[in-house]
Computed example of a mutant assay.
Amino acid sequence: MKYLVRSDAVLTDVAFLLVRVCVGAVFLAHGWDAVVNRGVAEMVPGHRELGIPLPELSAPFLAYGELVGGVLLIVGAVTRAAAVVLAFIMGGAWVFVHAEGGLMLANGGFEYVMVLAAICLLVLVHGPGRFSADALAAGRFGAPLPERPAARA
C-alpha cells in the first residue's frame, strides 16, 4: 500500500527516467533548431517584435537554455537547475507568446508550454530519480532511496 502514495519504488524512478528523456528530447530538438538551423542572431528580431525584454540576451538564453537544458534532463545531470531554467523559459513563452491565444494550441494557445512547464516543476520538486547522473554522482545509482517520515493527516 505504501507504494501507492510514496515515490520510492523503482517503477517511479523508471517513469521519471522516461519523462526526463522524452521532455529533454523535446527541449533538445527545439534548442538545436534555434542554435543550428535558425541561428541565435536570427531570433533577436522576433523576440523584439514579441515584446520580450532584452532580446539580445533573451534569444541566446532561450536557445542555449533549451539545448543544454534538454541534454541535462536526458542524462539527469544538474537536473533541478536545468528544470528551473526550462520552466522559466516556458513561463516566458506562455506570457509573451501564447497567453493571448487562450488554452488551445490550435489557436496559438499555451497548452503545450503549460504542460512542459508543469513537468519541469515536477522534476524540480521530485528530483531526477535514482537512474540519473545526479544519483550516480551522489553514489546512489540503483540504491533504494532513504525512508521518508510518514505524512501527518
Score class of each variant (00 low, 15 high):
residue 97 V to L: 10
residue 95 V to N: 06
residue 26 V to K: 07
residue 142 G to F: 02
residue 15 A to N: 06
residue 128 P to V: 01
residue 32 W to D: 01
residue 124 L to A: 02
residue 77 A to F: 15
residue 30 H to N: 12
residue 64 Y to S: 00
residue 81 A to N: 00
residue 126 H to M: 11
residue 22 C to K: 03
residue 100 E to F: 07
residue 81 A to F: 08
residue 44 V to R: 05
residue 133 A to F: 13
residue 12 T to G: 06
residue 43 M to V: 04
residue 56 E to F: 09
residue 153 A to N: 12
residue 102 G to Y: 09
residue 50 L to D: 04
residue 107 N to D: 15
residue 128 P to E: 02
residue 150 A to S: 09
residue 111 E to H: 12
residue 122 L to V: 13
residue 134 D to C: 01
residue 15 A to S: 13
residue 84 V to H: 02
residue 14 V to C: 10
residue 51 G to M: 06
residue 50 L to Q: 10
residue 65 G to R: 08
residue 75 V to E: 00
residue 23 V to A: 12
residue 103 L to F: 15
residue 112 Y to L: 13
residue 26 V to R: 06
residue 151 A to Q: 12
residue 131 F to C: 04
residue 2 K to C: 04
residue 60 P to E: 01
residue 92 G to D: 03
residue 3 Y to W: 13
residue 73 L to S: 02
residue 148 R to W: 07
residue 119 I to V: 15
residue 53 P to F: 12
residue 33 D to R: 14
residue 57 L to D: 01
residue 142 G to I: 04
residue 109 G to Q: 08
residue 27 F to V: 08
residue 86 L to E: 01
residue 51 G to V: 09
residue 98 H to M: 10
residue 5 V to D: 11
residue 13 D to M: 05
residue 122 L to G: 14
residue 131 F to W: 07
residue 78 V to Y: 13
residue 91 G to L: 10
residue 141 F to E: 00
residue 50 L to E: 01
residue 9 A to N: 08
residue 131 F to Q: 01
residue 41 A to Y: 04
residue 53 P to W: 07
residue 118 A to C: 10
residue 92 G to L: 09
residue 70 G to M: 09
residue 133 A to M: 11
residue 83 A to Y: 07
residue 24 G to M: 12
residue 101 G to K: 10
residue 133 A to I: 15
residue 106 A to T: 14
residue 8 D to Q: 10
residue 60 P to T: 04
residue 77 A to C: 11
residue 78 V to I: 08
residue 28 L to D: 01
residue 39 G to F: 05
residue 9 A to Y: 03
residue 56 E to S: 12
residue 134 D to G: 04
residue 74 I to M: 13
residue 95 V to I: 14
residue 20 R to W: 07
residue 120 C to W: 03
residue 146 P to N: 07
residue 97 V to P: 05
residue 29 A to H: 11
